[in-house]
Design a protein around this nucleic acid. Structure first.
Length: 582
DNA sequence: GCCGTTTTCGGCCCGACTGTTTTCAGTCG
């Protein structure tokens, strides 16, 4: 998949141009193009050269550069840029408070090109005296370096959201705020989060800020003004609070929810229509008359757009769709009728069937699939065929006692490193549902890994592939897979792909989900629950689905039990299986 | 470098805060 490679190159070109002090709009053009190429729901290699200019933010020049890269593997202009300054210099931009101007200044005057050098010079006070730099700036650079070292990586959504909700609760209780909400990428439910943005209205903003900066978890106050303050909490996470007048709350929510690219598009639209948008509202340019801004919907309505849910606000086609009235009706948490990936005490889960059923019923589900590990996964007490059949009898007996609820009997079957499956077809035939997944050989070649997945999907009994790319956020990258081939075979064989809702997986991710939908692949959202309290993770999976533009109808486990079983492969269980695949 | 209901030139989102500044530049979101 070249989309990411091209996006990375465009971003690096933007970084380099920024340090060179090039035209800011040219730089922005590269960044916007990078975003759009990365978020493109298609493999860029499949886009004909002439169609490239139809991608938003791609004009004749960038289309040429993309074509050049796809055909020759290089971009001449990029190669030339690379010769102008060392790559390490770009790492300076990752230091908070240090931007392109300072990076250029440091490089030009002191030839600083690495973080180590920067740290040495700053701590020896060799920077003070340069134009615009004094002691305080040195201090801030050292602080920024420390922040960077602590690992200011983006954190998994599932780690950050609970922290944000705690702070929100605290402020609701102790600060004089009227409205208060989470904004930023957290509200858009991105899978990783850099900081927490909060937005509030208050009759006593100064006091609200005081309460905020005295939160018991505050480690450091970065900035404190009458309308905006920033703190670092003990979890080493930045939290910003912004206070706006009540009549501006909606406009400010749009503004601080972002994304930046989405906002820029909205503003450009407004300008074309003779209006202006800022965080205080939307107004007419000619006489400055304010047209709206108290409610978020005002902004979209006045621009002639339908309301765009936060998860879609990435400038990846949602504005065009909203203008056409073509936005998807995104799936909602309440649409899910059951969970199709659940572990019990029989393998590495913590609960009995009865406990799992009780917890699932409390969520309003009408089914769960018990999918304990297969024998190959000995560390997780994988089941042998005999145990699997014993489990089947127990589930059948329990199902007879249940009213309005059904346990589906399944397995999370290991796909072995040579592509063979861990259970024979004669065993799989006995199950309601077969979830297949990889647990080993992650470093194999793209061809071998793809072959294993494809082999599994071609088996007539394999209904779902779980956590298809194997990524663990912040710990392990996705396997090297030919995703287009995976999607193609999934569509062809009617195998569903899973959005694993564990916040450390969220796999498939948003971009893949959207691609999968384009290619006609059915999706399920499952929690991979190992203990009853993990059923609640489903909402994270729903967030991914929403960011991937999925509607209720795109997701199999929004169906009632009978329809689900009809849609799941194999569609007719009584038919004799085709020649089994090994 | 992109883009067009001001369309092939001349615009391009906008404001808060900080630190360095006598009025503003840099960074951030």
């Amino acid at each position: 998949m070249k989309n990411q490679e091209i996006a990375r190159i465009f971003n690096e070109i933007a970084d380099r141009l920024e340090i060179k002090g090039e035209n800011l709009f040219r730089i922005r053009a590269y960044r916007r193009a990078a975003l759009n190429v990365e978020g493109l729901p298609k493999n860029i290699e499949d886009v004909p050269e002439k169609e490239l200019v139809k991608v938003p933010g791609i004009g004749r020049d960038l289309a040429g550069k993309i074509h050049e890269y796809l055909t020759s593997g290089k971009i001449q202009a990029y190669e030339e840029l690379k010769n102008e300054m060392p790559k390490e210099l770009l790492t300076l931009l990752s230091v908070p408070s240090l931007g392109p101007k300072t990076a250029k200044l440091l490089y030009d005057t002191l030839h600083v090109e690495s973080l180590d050098e920067l740290e040495r010079l700053a701590s020896e006070h060799k920077l003070a005296g340069l134009p615009g730099i004094k002691e305080k700036t040195e201090e801030n650079i050292l602080k920024g370096l420390a922040t960077l070292k602590r690992g200011k990586e983006r954190r998994p959504l599932g780690r950050v959201l609970p922290l944000a909700e705690d702070i929100l609760g605290y402020l609701r209780k102790h600060a004089p705020v009227n409205n208060i909400d989470i904004a930023g990428s957290l509200r858009r439910r991105k899978d990783t989060i850099k900081d927490i943005d909060l937005l509030a209205t208050s009759d006593r903003p100064a006091e609200a800020m005081k309460v905020f900066t005295r939160h018991p978890e505050v480690k450091e106050i970065l900035a404190q003004g009458p309308t905006k303050s920033s703190i670092i909490i003990n979890a080493d996470l930045q939290v910003d609070l912004r206070v706006v007048p009540r009549e501006s709350y909606g406009a400010a929510l749009v503004y601080f929810t972002g994304s930046k690219a989405h906002n820029i598009r909205l503003r450009e639209m407004a300008i074309r229509m003779g209006m202006k948008i800022n965080e205080y509202g939307i107004s007419r340019e000619s006489d400055n008359r304010k047209l709206g801004g108290e409610r978020e919907d005002d902004i979209y309505r006045i621009l002639g757009l339908s309301y765009i849910p936060p998860e879609l606000r990435e400038d990846l086609g949602e504005i065009e769709a909203a203008a056409e009235g073509d936005l998807p009706h995104l799936v909602m948490p309440g649409d899910l009728k059951g969970d199709l990936h659940v572990h019990s005490k029989w393998s590495d889960g913590g609960n009995t069937f009865e406990q799992l059923v009780e917890a699932a019923r409390e969520l309003g589900y009408s089914y769960i699939a018990i999918t304990d590990h297969s024998r190959g996964l000995a560390v997780a007490h994988g089941l042998t065929v005999e145990r699997l059949m014993e489990q089947k009898r127990e589930i059948q007996a329990l199902n007879k006692k249940l009213r309005g609820f059904r346990i589906l009997h399944g397995t999370e079957m290991d796909i072995r490193s040579d592509g063979r499956l861990d259970f024979p077809d004669s065993a799989l035939r006995e199950l309601d549902i077969v979830v297949a997944s990889l647990h080993s050989g992650f470093r194999q070649s793209v061809q071998q890994l793809t072959y294993r997945m494809v082999s599994a999907m071609k088996n007539p009994y394999v209904s779902i592939v779980a956590h298809p790319t194997g990524r663990l956020i912040g710990e392990r990258d996705a396997y090297e897979l030919d995703m287009d081939e995976i999607f193609r075979v999934a569509g062809e064989t009617g195998t569903a792909l899973e959005i694993n809702a564990s916040p450390f997986r969220l796999d498939l991710n948003d971009i893949s989900v959207r691609r999968a939908k384009e290619m006609g692949v059915a999706i399920v959202i499952s929690t991979d629950t190992h203990a009853t309290d993990q059923f609640g993770l489903m909402d994270y999976g729903v967030s991914v689905a929403r960011r991937g533009w999925l509607e209720k109808k795109d997701i199999l486990n929004t169906l009632p039990t009978d329809l689900l079983l009809k849609k799941l492969k194999p569609q007719s269980r009584r038919q004799a299986p085709a020649q089994s695949h090994r």
